[in-house]
């Protein structure tokens, strides 16, 4: 009887039905139904060394999540000791450097905000990416669905999610630029759903914490940006559409920011009346795709600056340099 049941179960897995991409995306973005904890390994590939070998970085984290929105992440040292702790209660987060004990409490940006046009974002996503659902090898010993985001235009990264079939938790996320040695892959090595987690693990307040002021400027429409002198288009190559704008005050100058989205990633375009300082040792020589200005690297992605008449533009994005060149040309043509 047991053998028959096992045989039927084995046959059943081969006929496992697939949910739709929208259903998987909704479940992946939803707050978890139950608490869980685990160990996450993050690996990053960031180009090649002069001898042609791949450059890589890795880090390991201990993660604990308690619904609806409490998260604790511990960055671990090789010996398993805790280097840094980040705790969030959904509206505020506390970051602590364990070696010095220094602690900062900051507001989580976007906390409490609602999207005025959720279907518009989905439409942009569908316009720019093909979403493909499939099965994959288990992650952390768990059966998963795989949801892939394949860009419809060149020069953009692909993204894949591995989602636990039972808990609907994202167990693995990988983002990579096809054919290029740049990628980031984070996955659970150990996943424990239904863990008992004490509330004290997620306490944000700390007696000696420094409080970081966190009040971003109110978003502006394109019409409001243009009234302030912005010369930026509504749409950009690569399927990027204007999302919102902002006017920043930096050292007495007004810096106009236009934010664009392709449904999956954002691109920022800044317009200033003075150049922005890019450190010399961060600059990169022009490659096969000549750009109108110097290119630099940062944790925010690639940064390119160029001048057009009396205006200075700075672009921040993670798309290819070829696409950045096309976008800069589109901005020049829009004037």
């Amino acid at each position: 009887m047991l053998a028959l049941a096992l045989a039927l179960a084995a046959l059943g897995t081969s006929a496992r039905a697939l949910p739709s991409a929208d259903e998987l995306l909704d479940s992946a973005l939803a707050a978890p139904a139950a608490a869980y904890r685990g160990r996450v390994l993050v690996v990053q590939w960031y180009g090649r060394a002069p001898d042609g070998s791949l450059r890589t970085r890795a880090s390991e984290l201990a993660v604990a999540v308690k619904p609806p929105d409490r998260v604790r992440r511990e960055l671990l040292a090789p010996d398993g000791s805790v280097e840094r702790v980040l705790v969030s209660d959904g509206s505020r987060e506390r970051a602590t450097l364990c070696r010095t004990g220094r602690t900062v409490v900051a507001q989580v940006p976007g906390a409490g905000e609602t999207d005025a046009a959720p279907e518009a974002r989905r439409e942009i996503l569908r316009r720019n990416y093909e979403l493909i659902v499939g099965t994959a090898a288990p992650v952390a010993g768990r059966e998963v669905w795989r949801l892939s985001f394949v860009p419809k235009s060149a020069g953009k990264a692909r993204l894949a999610l591995w989602i636990d079939k039972d808990s609907k938790t994202i167990l693995r996320v990988k983002r990579w630029l096809p054919g290029r040695p740049f990628a980031r892959d984070s996955q659970f090595l150990v996943f424990e759903p239904g863990a008992e987690l004490d509330d004290s693990l997620f306490r944000v307040d700390a007696a000696t914490a420094e409080i970081a002021a966190a009040h971003p400027p109110s978003p502006l429409t394109m019409a409001e940006l243009r009234a302030k002198g912005a010369a930026m288009p509504e749409g950009l190559p690569g399927g990027f559409a204007f999302e919102s704008g902002a006017a920043l005050k930096v050292r007495g100058s007004v810096v106009l920011q236009a934010r664009y989205t392709d449904g999956l990633s954002t691109l920022s375009l800044f317009q200033t009346d003075r150049p922005v300082h890019l450190p010399k040792n961060a600059s990169v020589p022009a490659g096969r795709n000549p750009l109108p200005g110097p290119l630099s690297a940062s944790a925010a992605g690639k940064i390119m600056q160029w001048r057009s008449g009396r205006r200075h533009f700075v672009m921040m994005s993670d798309v290819s340099r070829a696409l950045m060149g096309k976008i800069a040309a589109a901005v020049a043509a829009a004037r």
Binding site: G47, G179, K302, R321
Partner: peptide
Amino acid sequence: VASADADSAALLADDGAGGSAE
């Protein structure tokens, strides 16, 4: 901006080598 991370500049330098593949 790579003043603290020399590897980041290498990241972008390598990006130009295979631009035609895109």
